[in-house]
């Protein structure tokens, strides 16, 4: 079954061959085009591999990087997450769900007056720590929060 999944993933990623080649340079503060898609980071199965592909290893905590997430999510298919950074010159924010099959969910780069503030809705497969990683002035910061997912239960 696992093999099948891999084959399918590969097939679906065929358009991303170019992206694979470009992956190393993707997180430079350039515009993201579809063929820039950071395949290595998005398809990484482990947190460390995903962070490495993002060039975001060795993050430090910072009180000005704040994540809002529900403590308990009754529906893991739609979990609202809000990340904002008041760290000066925050260039990008990535959001990872540690226990998802592929932890990286999304990366956002900000420029021309956009505030480093993003709200998304994510799929969370099971109770997991959610981590936000921000880059500012070449340094990497992170914050995290655990979200409990009650699948098909009646909450509480």
């Amino acid at each position: 079954m696992d093999m099948l999944r891999r084959t399918v993933l590969k097939g679906a990623g065929a358009t991303g061959v170019l992206a694979g080649l470009l992956a190393a340079g993707v997180l430079k503060p350039t515009l993201a085009y579809a063929n820039d898609w950071n395949k290595a980071a998005f398809e990484a199965k482990e947190l460390d591999a995903a962070l490495k592909a993002l060039g975001a290893e060795g993050a430090a905590e910072h009180k000005d990087l704040v994540m809002k997430a529900p403590e308990i999510a009754e529906n893991g298919a739609v979990v609202p997450i809000d990340v904002s950074s008041a760290i000066p010159n925050t260039a990008s924010i990535a959001i990872l769900v540690l226990k998802n099959p592929s932890p990286l969910t999304s990366v956002f780069e900000f420029s021309n007056g956009a505030m480093a503030d993003v709200a998304v809705r994510l799929k969370v497969a099971q109770t997991s720590v959610i981590r936000a990683v921000a880059k500012a002035d070449g340094k990497v910061y992170s914050t995290q929060k655990e979200v409990k997912v009650t699948v098909g239960g009646c909450g509480g």
């Binding site: 898609w37 298919a77 956002f108 956009a114 505030m115 709200a119 998304v120």
Partner: peptide
């Protein structure tokens, strides 16, 4: 002018909703 450029994977919810803030 581009203000936000994002990359997303399959773990963003169906019918995605995004919120951004813009200064000035």
């Amino acid at each position: 002018k581009t203000v936000v450029s994002g990359q997303t994977g399959g773990s963003v919810s169906r019918n995605p909703v995004f919120g951004f803030k813009l200064k000035g």
